[in-house]
Simulated scan of single mutants.
Amino acid sequence: MTVRRTLHFAVAGREHELAANRVRDYADAPGGIQADLRVSKVRPRVVPVPYGSRPSTCPVRAWSAWKEAAGLDDPDGYAWRRLHSRWHTVMDGGLQPESIGDVITRAGQRAGIEIRFTGHSPRRGLATSSRLKGHDQIVIAKQGGWAPHSKVLAGYLEVVDQWEDNALLGVL
């Protein structure tokens, strides 16, 4: 389910935030979509998700394709649905938070990645990737629903910053 993974990354969502989402929680906007994450560990938030530069990894295009292919026309229906294990048809019930993490773990294993991916990996991935592109910690925190000066977020960014913001740059 590539669409869920791309949106999971784009909103830096927690597993339970995505599991609770309904179709109505993804609204079209001029620059992409607005993802309304109403159920949250910290506080609800609306996350702007712009169109991606590559159609193959664009979360907005992927959401539109999933919505159409799955026939998601009930605004109160779950946005992320289970597939029937034998017939691979879209079912009415939504995914459980644990299932979201399991899907990511299995996808990482199938890809042969040595690091064990979990449901938390898209959050950490967004923080790290965003920092590598030069985005400020406050902007990253807002996108991912972290507190502005979160120690957890700072720990993720430290991995990137140890080379970019190193006291020895220009000294040696």
Rank of each mutant, 00 (worst) to 15 (best):
P30V: 03
Q34V: 12
A35V: 13
V39W: 15
V39A: 11
R43W: 04
P44N: 07
V47C: 10
V47E: 04
P48W: 01
Y51G: 07
Y51P: 08
G52L: 00
V60R: 00
R61N: 01
W63L: 03
W63Q: 02
S64M: 09
S64E: 09
S64A: 09
W66H: 14
A69Q: 11
L72Q: 10
D73I: 12
D73Y: 15
P75M: 06
L83F: 14
H84M: 06
T89K: 13
V90P: 10
M91A: 12
G94I: 09
G94S: 10
Q96L: 12
E98I: 13
V103H: 13
I104R: 04
G108Y: 03
G108V: 06
G108I: 08
Q109Y: 14
R110Q: 13
A111S: 11
G112A: 10
I113R: 11
E114T: 09
G119E: 05
S121P: 03
P122Q: 10
R123H: 07
R123W: 02
R124I: 05
G125Q: 04
S130E: 01
L132N: 08
K133Y: 00
H135P: 01
D136I: 06
A141T: 03
G144W: 00
V152K: 13
E158C: 08
D161Q: 11
D161I: 04
Q162A: 11
E164L: 12
E164C: 03
N166H: 15
